[in-house]
């Protein structure tokens, strides 16, 4: 009948609305379920994934040695022209001339963190760091030189 149908509709609607309100009410009364991470405060506990792609870095040993041979594979692999490698000729003790890395310029502002350079590197010279706080006040600060001054190629890496 029309009247019963009318009241049934009202009853069903109110019930469905109360179901939703019960859910939000449940979470209102259970603040422990809060998901918020209070970011700048939890900096110390903050643990990023090991593979997180923050920025490209070149690890150096304590003796200020890196593994980059200056082969430019990463420069070729980069789709955006983020990496620029400048090489120099170095005379080895045995008198041979050898191409060595002079500067590795990495432009963070152009990087899309696609990991292709890391994959392309044959000597594992570069890697992705977990640092993600990249904001600076001057764009020029995003243009980074990855090899430290006076750093050398590690022995045995060709």
């Amino acid at each position: 009948m029309f009247i019963t149908e009318y009241f049934k509709t009202i009853f069903r609607s109110v019930k469905s609305l109360l179901t939703g309100m019960r859910l939000t009410g449940y979470y209102f009364t259970h603040p422990s379920k809060t998901l918020t991470q209070e970011y700048p405060d939890n900096r110390k506990e903050l643990k990023l994934a090991d593979r997180f792609r923050g920025e490209v870095v070149m690890p150096h040993t304590e003796a200020n040695e890196h593994r980059c041979t200056g082969c430019q594979a990463c420069e070729l692999a980069c789709p955006n022209g983020t990496i620029k490698i400048i090489t120099k000729q170095e005379i080895l003790p045995d008198g041979k001339k050898k191409k060595r890395l002079d500067t590795m310029i990495y432009n963070l502002s152009m990087c899309t963190f696609c990991n292709l350079c890391i994959v392309a590197c044959p000597s594992d010279a570069i890697t992705m760091s977990q640092d993600f706080e990249h904001s600076v006040l001057d764009r020029s600060k995003l243009r980074k030189i990855l090899n430290k001054p006076d750093s050398k190629l590690m022995e045995g890496v060709e």
Binding site: T24, Y27, P31, T34, L35, E38
Partner: peptide, 13 residues
């Protein structure tokens, strides 16, 4: 605050 607690958040803090 009410909105935040209902949405699993903390709200202004």
């Amino acid at each position: 605050r009410v909105a935040a607690f209902m949405q699993l958040r903390l709200g202004p803090n």
